[in-house]
């Protein structure tokens, strides 16, 4: 896992729920099917337009709702390199770490980028930067205990070792 990532940004609002990230109707479908429905009721073009390495930026309470790990798993399967949000619902945060999907808590990030912009995120320093404008927003780096699991590639990687 890279500590610094650069990619194209997708911006969403507050309270992006697990029902939006992983609709219940596809709960037991394989990830190849589930990932096609990510955020479809907010932006029907998202799942087909997103590219590996893109960054997802959102407001507060990202991933609120159920415990379904398919929510971060779908984002990872679409190639999202990092989710940067104002805050995360706790089970989503846990699950992102458990499967090795990098995240950053950064309340001001949505204020300095629009969808389509290029941005850079530094997990160590917590800095988020709009590449074109040079504007920055300071986030909260995750505690070392969580970053260790992320760096290992997730909690099952720690179990294997």
């Amino acid at each position: 896992m890279d500590e610094v990532m650069r990619g194209r940004v997708w911006v969403f609002g507050d309270d992006i729920s697990t029902d939006l990230l992983s609709p219940g109707a596809y709960a037991v479908d394989p990830v190849e099917v589930r990932k096609l429905h990510v955020l479809e009721s907010v932006d029907p073009a998202f799942a087909s337009s997103v590219r590996p390495g893109d960054l997802l930026v959102a407001g507060a309470n990202f991933g609120c709702g159920s415990s379904r790990e398919t929510a971060p798993e779908n984002l990872k399967a679409l190639g999202i390199a990092c989710v940067v949000a104002g805050s995360f619902a706790r089970i989503f945060l846990r699950n992102a770490i458990a499967i090795g999907l990098p995240i950053l808590i950064c309340p001001d990030a949505p204020l300095i980028v629009d969808t389509g912009d290029e941005a850079e995120v530094d997990l160590t320093s917590g800095m988020f930067r709009n590449v074109a404008t040079g504007e920055t927003a300071r986030g909260e780096p995750l505690p070392p205990e969580m970053r260790q699991i992320l760096a290992a590639g997730g909690i099952l990687a720690t179990l294997r070792s």
Partner: peptide
């Protein structure tokens, strides 16, 4: 609540 990976870890 936890996700499936955390559950696998806990069950093991």
């Amino acid at each position: 609540g936890v996700g499936t990976s955390d559950m696998v870890y806990a069950l093991a």
